[in-house]
């Protein structure tokens, strides 16, 4: 095991995991995205919004809610080259798939895919997870991702 591997393994323990942007998601009670829903027109939102943005909605009634669980891969792309800042990634860069997923709760959301590009297929069932996207200063910075079922 290299020093780097050891560091990464340490970082994967809960104490050293840190969300890449605070407040957007959590993993303590399972992987959840912190969003909202309008109880008038049932539109889901992530991240949270202050008022409903559906032009057909009669009255904005936004309540906080969380999203997680399973969904279906609507389509995907691949980052064959590293995106520019403010994206951060572990070196050497490994191409990853980016999914657009329709969660069963009615939210279409983008996120990195955990599994390698070669096994991706449109229509696959997936599950929301929280996983590291890069390591820095002995910490694992996490984000939401999707894992093939």
């Amino acid at each position: 095991m290299t020093e780097r591997d050891t560091m990464n393994e340490l970082a994967n323990t809960a104490a050293l995991r840190e969300p890449c942007v605070p407040g957007l998601f959590s993993e303590e009670e399972g992987a959840r995205l912190h969003g909202a829903r309008c109880t008038c027109c049932n539109t889901p939102y992530f991240p949270r919004v202050a008022t409903c943005r559906n032009p057909a909605c009669e009255e904005s009634k936004i309540v906080p809610c969380t999203f997680g669980g399973e969904g279906r891969l609507w389509s995907y792309s691949v980052a064959d080259f590293p995106p520019p800042l403010p994206h951060r990634y572990d070196k050497p860069f490994v191409p990853y798939a980016i999914g657009v997923v329709d969660l069963d709760s009615g939210l279409r959301v983008v996120g990195q895919m955990v599994d390698p590009v070669e096994v991706m297929r449109v229509g696959a069932r997936v599950r929301l997870v929280i996983e590291p996207i890069h390591h820095e200063d002995g910490k694992a910075f996490t984000s939401w991702k999707f894992k093939l079922l």
Partner: peptide, 9 residues
């Protein structure tokens, strides 16, 4: 958010 959390060029 899209670049930091996902990395979508």
């Amino acid at each position: 958010l899209r670049q930091r959390c996902v990395g979508m060029p």
